[in-house]
Design a protein around this nucleic acid. Structure first.
Lengths: 240, 240
DNA sequence: AGCGTGCTATAACATAAGTTATGAACGGGC
DNA sequence: GCCCGTTCATAACTTATGTTATAGCACGCT
């Protein structure tokens, strides 16, 4: 599963076994449980085996900003590679399984395998591209566009690994989480969903999302999947 | 200068000479000149020797979102390490000097020096932390807070390398660039500056910024410099 | 069955920020 | 010295989104 995900980036030879070893000893976490907290020591990464999680920061005034949404195949905490403490709190949205992987071991692997360290660099870089796109989303799009865009992002990311039906999927994000991800109020997210429904662009029933016309929605949201789909060149640093 | 900047992260031995070689052949660019364009082939990084630059994306509807602001010592384009095309357009704000550095050469260096590749990973990671903080800024803060926060970010980043007086500095960002960075309208940025002035929190005259009470402004903006100051542990991957 | 709790929808109202317009100040080119 | 463009300030008005409140519905618990 994790390997599957990885295959999008580079084809490995005997690093494969190494990657596979990341998937030992999965740990179960229940929905609404905190996995790690802001300012904690950041000694490990996690890879997501199953379930959804998200990370956020809480502000002084009690509001919060959701920063990432993690689905199976994602790596949690790569961001804190060079930081000794966590920058965000991570919480499970659903019951989930994750594999812990100590930074120190990662260090060994990197020393052994240039390829692997490049791969992780590439993943980190792709994460940045996602953040960039979200910055655009928060800064310059209307509420309906924001909502549509985030939905399309999640859909695209899921479809990379799971061949979903092409107009429907499950997105277990309650509206208050969406609102904290998009910088909106929960009420306005609700309003916006009904607006999108009336336009016939997007239907939501609980956690199932239905998109009657994918192209139309993409155009509406200004969604272009370059930043996700761009096939990371195999072994980027050694080309040329 | 670049070396100076680097010293914040890790102390190198003979990689120093290597880094120094990045600074050969600086190229001059004039204010308001495009350095590279979205979708161009991304074959090189740049390091900033002098001057200010910024990167942005243009949306379908003609608006744009500014994504980074670069000052001397910054690395441009690290983000595109794993992408074959640029994700953003980069433009000079002032006359500037930058050094081009081909990706392919970087690849060689990485293969030779684990330390160097870790260093770049660390820089990329710190960039992410900055993006995260900006996400919070765009999502969950009021216009005056946004403006104050961005100003404080730039001030902190400049002070890392240049010992500025503690309450005054130059920030050559016209209001329409600030507005595109913060997701506001240019008019509202103007209004917000006068509001901050009336509160006595922040004074701006052209490009010079004056902050009478740094602590007060930080509290107002919800600015905590962890994400910038955290001393990246020397040789992070080999600790432990 | 009865009860609380969490999620969602909707309405009425309040406010921050966008839009359009105007004029002042400044600087560069000729 | 004059014209032009850019930047900035300010005003009047519009609009998107936030806030508070209420109610329905599903679910789990006792």
């Amino acid at each position: 599963m994790l390997k599957h995900f990885r295959s999008y980036a580079t084809l490995d030879s005997d690093d494969e076994t190494l990657l596979a070893s990341l998937e030992k000893s999965p740990k179960k976490v229940c929905a609404d449980t905190v996995v790690c907290r802001e300012h904690d020591a950041a000694k490990a990464f996690y890879t997501v085996m199953s379930g959804w999680l998200f990370s956020y920061r809480e502000l002084e005034d009690g509001t919060r900003q959701v920063l990432d949404i993690y689905v199976p195949g994602d790596v949690i905490g790569l961001r804190e590679f060079a930081f000794s403490n966590r920058l965000t709190t991570v919480m499970a949205l659903t019951d989930a399984e994750i594999c812990e992987f100590p930074k120190s071991r990662m260090a060994e692997e990197f020393a052994h395998s240039v390829l692997l360290s490049n791969l992780f660099f590439a993943i980190a870089t792709r994460e940045q591209a996602v953040l960039l796109e979200r910055l655009v989303n928060l800064g310059r799009r209307s509420a309906p566009q924001k909502l549509a865009h985030l939905t399309l992002e999640m859909f695209s990311r899921l479809r990379r690994t799971n061949p979903y039906p092409e107009n429907q999927f499950k997105m277990p994000l309650p509206q208050h989480v969406l609102s904290d991800a998009l910088g909106l109020s929960a009420v306005h997210v609700s309003r916006t969903f009904t607006e999108l429904k009336q336009e016939g662009l997007l239907f939501r029933d609980g956690s199932t999302i239905l998109i009657p016309d994918l192209e139309k929605l993409k155009e509406f949201a200004g969604f272009s999947p370059h930043y996700l789909e761009e096939s990371v060149p195999r072994l980027p640093t050694l080309e040329a």
